[in-house]
């Protein structure tokens, strides 16, 4: 089931309704979407269109109100929270908008953290992380704590952390929103390269034109539903 011919993720008629006192908000409304392995996809749309919620549904951080979600062939909504946590550990990498490193760990320790949880041995962990640091121009920063890194460097470490454990897909919610234009471009270069060279699957939630431009698939969200789904080559 976890073979690499299953899609990285798939949703089938998935709804998320937030109940708030009197009113209820339909954040995601019947989305059916398949993310194939190796995609470099952006979920685009105005603020409040449900991008973050959909990403959280795919990553198992939120349970759907209706519908189903598969990650690497595993159906998420029927799992216990421990099972979802384990699935996330193996198959999902997250990059958030900002401040998503653990401040008490060094850059290298942050990047190897999911592998540490997975039980990957130290030699393998360090080999993988050092290779990634090298590949992305982060050499020499391994032993710095996040507080001693720039915002762009922190986001790179977050990307490397998400990638290093070799998940089925990396979910990145507005990863460039806190970065200036040049830094954003550089981060996108890194992710595009990882996608191209290592086949890492990326799904972005974004309203940043620079991100949309570089994606090979653009899924437009309107009021919680999928509008256009455009593939480019």
């Amino acid at each position: 089931m976890t073979t690499s011919d299953t899609p990285a993720a798939r949703t089938e008629g998935v709804w998320k309704i937030f109940q708030q006192e009197a009113e209820s908000v339909q954040a995601v409304r019947g989305v059916s979407l398949t993310i194939e392995r190796g995609e470099f996809t952006a979920l685009a749309g105005p603020s409040g269109s449900g991008k973050t919620t959909l990403l959280n549904l795919i990553g198992g951080l939120t349970r759907p109100t209706r519908g189903q979600v598969w990650v690497a062939g595993h159906e998420v909504s029927s799992m216990s929270s421990q099972q979802v946590a384990r699935l996330r550990l193996r198959e999902v990498g997250f990059v958030f908008q900002a401040y998503n490193l653990l401040p008490v760990l060094t850059a290298l320790e942050n990047a190897e953290f999911p592998m540490l949880l997975q039980g990957v041995d130290v030699a393998e962990r360090h080999a993988r992380v050092r290779e990634l640091f090298q590949r992305t121009g982060m050499e020499g920063l391994e032993d710095r704590r996040p507080g001693k890194l720039s915002g762009g460097q922190q986001q790179r470490v977050a990307v490397l952390r998400a990638v290093a454990s070799r998940p089925a897909l990396v979910l990145a919610d507005e990863p460039t929103a806190n970065l200036d234009s040049a830094t954003s471009e550089a981060l996108l270069d890194v992710m595009a390269e990882l996608n191209r060279d290592l086949g890492v699957t990326f799904v972005f939630a974004t309203h940043d034109g620079r991100v949309m431009e570089r994606c090979r698939r653009l899924v437009r969200m309107v009021d919680g539903a999928v509008g256009e789904d455009e593939r480019r080559t």
């Binding site: 990553g59 951080l61 996330r88 999902v92 401040y99 653990l102 999911p114 949880l117």
Partner: peptide
Amino acid sequence: REFGVLRAQGLTP
């Protein structure tokens, strides 16, 4: 937020 990060990395509650 830190606990959020940990959970997103696959730590159980």
